[in-house]
Amino acid sequence: MSPTPPPSVRRVACIGAGVIGGGWVAHFLARGYDVTAWDPAPDAEDKLRRLVTAAWPALEQLGLAEGASPSRLTMAPTLDEAVADAEFVQESAPEKLELKRDLLAQLDAATPPGVVIASSTSGYPMTDMQTAAATPGRLVVGHPFNPPYLIPLVEVAGGERTDRTAVEWAAEFYEAAGKSVITMDRELPGFIANRLQEALWREALHMVANGEATVEDIDTSITEGPGLRWAFMGPMLTFALAGGEGGMAHMLDHFGPSLKSPWTRLEAPELDRALRDAVVDGCDRAADGRTYAQLVAERDQGVIDVLRATGRLDGPAR
């Protein structure tokens, strides 16, 4: 799709230099890329360089690529100049659908043929954003998490008119750029992580509104509870361990009926055989051959390491 193989990309254009766009700039600089940025705000360059300066100490702790330097940032005076020699484009404009449509169409017209253009949208499907572009096949979603220079995850998805090769190219590029990538097989409004965050957020608001829990209660329930495990073992594998040696199969067969209990304001899906088998098989793949005892040991050590790293347990992490 792109004239440059993903591992060989050296110049990236970042369009939009706010919190998310600036975070992308910092990340790409730390990975040793030459970055050209553009933002229409008159004070954009000053704000962007301050953001990069503020992020750099954290990036140094994470480890800089060879040749990484803030001096490899160039601020272009126009959008066309910003993408003129780009080998990849990351768009991070405000979350307004019409703005995204128009901007992606402009980027498509100005960017060299074949170069993949990714949007940092946090919720819009690419199908809705690519309608005005002349060559929509190279437009993908590359949804990061704030700050992009610190949080590894990026979710990659195409739209109805996106070429699959563009999705695959983008996923390979992000991996080469040091990101942890989920390549989605289909479009889903809000993608995966935001939908999970949103479910938790809505239930939290219900509890506060109904006087069922305070803000402090809710935050403590996560930071001192499941959040400790989620840092290294997601909710699905965590629940599988709750099934003991029987794993997720036992968990679902034993606790499945509780899905009908009114524990949340979200309606539970029907736990039919197909859903049960999909979840059990997925957990088996995630375990990747590790035994129940091995998974328990990993979980326990992980919680201890997180507690020590966050100053809640004395002694050095292993």
Rank of each mutant, 00 (worst) to 15 (best):
P113D: 15
V141Q: 09
A166D: 09
G158D: 12
P152G: 11
G178L: 06
Q106K: 14
Q106H: 08
E175V: 13
D102A: 15
T183Q: 14
A176S: 15
K100E: 05
T165N: 00
A93T: 14
A132W: 13
A105S: 14
E98H: 11
V181F: 01
L103S: 01
E160G: 13
M184D: 06
V140A: 01
K96M: 10
P125M: 12
S180F: 01
G158N: 12
F145P: 03
L153E: 05
E175Y: 00
A170R: 09
K100P: 06
F88H: 14
F173Q: 05
V140P: 02
E155R: 07
A133N: 01
T135Q: 08
S119T: 15
Q90N: 08
D128F: 01
H143A: 06
E95R: 08
D185I: 00
G178V: 09
R101Q: 15
P113H: 12
G137F: 10
L150M: 11
T162E: 02
V154E: 03
S180G: 00
V167C: 08
L99D: 05
T111I: 06
S92P: 01
E95V: 10
P113V: 13
I182P: 00
L104R: 04
S92Y: 02
E87Q: 15
E87Y: 11
P94S: 12
W169L: 04
F88G: 08
P136H: 02
R186F: 07
L150C: 00
W169S: 06
V154R: 03
V141G: 09
N146L: 03
H143I: 05
A86V: 12
V140G: 02
A176H: 13
K100W: 10
G142C: 13
V154S: 04
G123S: 14
Q90M: 14
G158E: 12
E87F: 11
K96S: 08
G159E: 05
S122N: 10
R161P: 02
E91Y: 08
G178M: 04
H143G: 07
F88S: 10
S180L: 11
A110S: 15
L150N: 00
V167M: 00
Q106G: 02
I182W: 13
V141E: 02
L104I: 11
V156T: 06
T111K: 02
P147M: 06
S120P: 04
T131D: 00
P112Q: 05
I151P: 02
T111C: 11
V89Y: 02
H143W: 07
R138C: 06
A171M: 02
P94C: 07
E87I: 07
V154G: 04
R164W: 00
T111F: 05
F145N: 09
S92D: 11
A93D: 07
A171G: 15
R161I: 01
A166V: 13
L103R: 00
S180T: 12
M129F: 03
E91W: 09
V181Y: 01
L103F: 03
L107G: 08
L153Q: 13
D108K: 11
E168A: 15
A171E: 07
R186W: 05
R161M: 03
A133Y: 01
E95D: 10
P112V: 11
E160D: 13
M129A: 08
S119D: 08
L97A: 10
T165E: 15
L97M: 11
M126Y: 04
D128L: 13
L97N: 07
L150P: 00
P152L: 08
H143C: 08
F145S: 10
D128Y: 00
M129N: 03
M126K: 07
P144L: 06
R101G: 09
E87P: 11
G114H: 04
T131W: 01
